[in-house]
Nucleic acid binder design. Structure first.
Length: 221
DNA sequence: CACCAGGCAAGTA
DNA sequence: TACTTGCATGGT
């Protein structure tokens, strides 16, 4: 017995916003670095930090390993929380060298949940960052949850407000076909939607959500 | 001026 | 287990 609403919501979002083509990164390493840099910060800020790293020529495994914590933190300043994020990046880099001998393609060998439990032990990587890495760099079918996702589901009444990360993730994964492309596309659409959505309730008069809620009531999901 | 942005870890009860 | 707080820049 599966709940059809998650797939229905996906179709509405895709129809409204169009395809999103995430994650915006040229390499898997860049994707992982970006995942840390965008923690609790809008992508524009994280993107500036990525640009700095590229211009300095340090967005590669060996340079990131060698660069001092101080120099690294200065380069990523625009991403906010720059001192802590520099430490988190160093922590991630040491994991890549320790676990994979510096071979990032090792992420694509082995099993999803084995990688997940190891990555979750890395200092500075929490569930969202880890799942983003697994989905967008690893190509594994795992659903990425963020604050927007939780807020949207609560707002639509699909789950209780402020449901936990695990609850929301399980809800999507139990009610959607296991499909990397679908999960990738869906998470991107939820973020775009979340940016569009008024943070404070009640929602603005003519935003998409109101339109969606109306359709929802009229024709059902 | 206030408030927010694609989290996470550490401390407290 | 379930809160609370620090971390910090840049845009509206």
């Amino acid at each position: 017995m599966t709940d059809r609403r998650p797939l229905s919501l996906y179709r509405h979002l895709l129809d409204y916003y169009g395809p999103q083509y995430w994650w915006p990164a040229e390499t898997d390493l860049e994707m992982m670095v970006g995942a840390v840099l965008t923690q609790a910060v809008n992508w524009e800020n994280a993107s500036k930090a990525i640009t700095n790293l590229k211009e300095e020529g340090v967005l590669n495994l060996s340079s990131l390993q060698e660069i001092s914590l101080q120099d690294l933190s200065q380069l990523i300043k625009p991403s906010g929380y720059y001192r802590i994020k520099a430490r988190r990046l160093k922590s991630l880099l040491s994991f890549i060298h320790r676990e994979w001998q510096g071979d990032i393609t090792r992420l694509k060998e082995g099993s999803l949940y084995e990688h997940r439990s190891r990555l979750l032990k890395v200092w500075g990587l929490g569930p969202e960052t880890v799942d983003a890495i697994l989905l967008y760099a690893g190509g594994y079918p795992i659903f990425v949850v963020d604050t927007y996702t939780i807020r949207i589901l609560g707002r639509l009444g699909l789950l209780a407000r402020d449901s936990s990360y695990t609850t929301v993730q399980r809800y999507f994964m139990q009610n959607l076909p296991e499909d990397v492309h679908l999960f990738s596309s869906y998470h991107a659409l939820l973020v775009v939607f979340g940016k569009d959505l008024c943070k404070k309730e009640p929602c603005c008069q003519d935003c998409f959500l109101q339109d969606l809620e109306k359709k929802w009531r009229e024709r059902g999901p």
